[in-house]
Nucleic acid binder design. Structure first.
Length: 278
DNA sequence: ACGCCCACCTGGAGGC
DNA sequence: TGCCTCCAGGTGGGCG
């Protein structure tokens, strides 16, 4: 379930498990992810010590000590990171584990991605901001650059619905389908509204809602971090937090009157309350 | 330029 | 049981 909060949760889990450790072995079961894993991948990273792990939008960036190359990792739609230590490592190999990285000969990080929309590659540190995967990304939603001024200016003349706009990684980096729905519900703004029709107050309210929803989800992910080392660990937990997403036909939790409606925008499901959102 | 559609993949759920 | 259809958290290329 990789939107920003899930990727941030994975980042924290990785930082905890492998920061300062040496990447002793890399096993690649298949290279053909969304982008092929470069043939030089193993030679580039094997034997190096993890310095720290960053996140940019939905990308994980693994930095190594004394190494120019940064490991750039995206989980796509179905990507999961499994962290296994000690006796857990002996457990039966699941399907669709494409890469296994071993640290200090004792901690295993497995990348499982059934749909293979994820990617794993190497980019030089000084080329990160201009790399084609990352160059177009907009501001981080939890940073200071995401201001009402910024978003209001960007919405001028935009005829796309606001929901599609906030899912655009060039506008806000890291918001995806679930949290776009959740934030619009919290802000009381209809996902169907065209971008240019939002008032300054609404834009401010929307930004506040996006930040609140993401922070809550990061907190929830953080609190269930231990589950993350186990397959299927966190799935049920996050779903409990959804107020509109995937709740078509159920009673709105706010007005307790209308049923949640599902519609399709830009090919993606949108969920909203027709009473609470205008 | 912008907004939308589609393909890229696999698996799970639900209908018949 | 099995087969079919639809749906899924992302992304970028291409089209009108």
């Amino acid at each position: 379930m990789p939107e920003l909060p899930e990727v941030e949760t994975v980042r924290r889990g990785l930082e905890h498990a492998i920061k300062g450790r040496k990447l002793t072995d890399i096993m690649i079961a298949r290279h053909d992810l969304r982008l092929p894993i470069p043939s030089s991948f193993i030679k580039t990273f094997q034997g190096h010590q993890v310095e720290h792990i960053d996140r940019r939008a939905k990308y994980l960036l693994v930095y190594f000590k004394d190494l120019d190359a940064v490991m750039v990792w995206h989980l796509g739609m179905s990507g999961r990171v499994l962290i296994l230590e000690g006796k857990d490592r002996q457990q039966e190999q699941e399907s669709h584990v494409h890469v296994i990285m071993t640290f200090d000969d004792s901690v295993e990080v497995r990348f499982r991605d059934p749909r293979r929309f994820g990617l794993l590659t190497a980019v030089d540190r000084d080329q990160l901001s201009t790399h084609r995967l990352l160059a177009h990304l907009g501001p981080e939603p939890l940073g200071k650059e995401l201001s009402p001024d910024y978003l209001l200016e960007l919405l001028k003349g935009k005829k796309a619905p606001i929901k599609s706009i906030i899912c655009d990684q060039a506008v806000i980096a890291g918001v995806g389908n679930i949290y776009a729905c959740e934030a619009l519900f919290q802000a009381g703004i209809s996902p169907l509204r065209l971008g240019h029709t939002l008032s300054r107050d609404e834009v401010a309210k929307l930004i506040h809602a996006i930040q609140a929803v993401l922070k809550d989800a990061v907190r929830a992910g953080g609190s269930s971090l231990r589950d993350h080392v186990q397959p299927n660990g966190m799935r049920g937990y996050f779903q409990k937090l959804f107020t509109v997403y995937d709740r078509e036909g159920e009673k709105c939790l706010k007005c307790k009157k209308s049923n949640i409606v599902r519609t399709v925008q830009s090919g993606r499901s949108t969920f909203y309350c027709p009473t609470c959102q205008h």
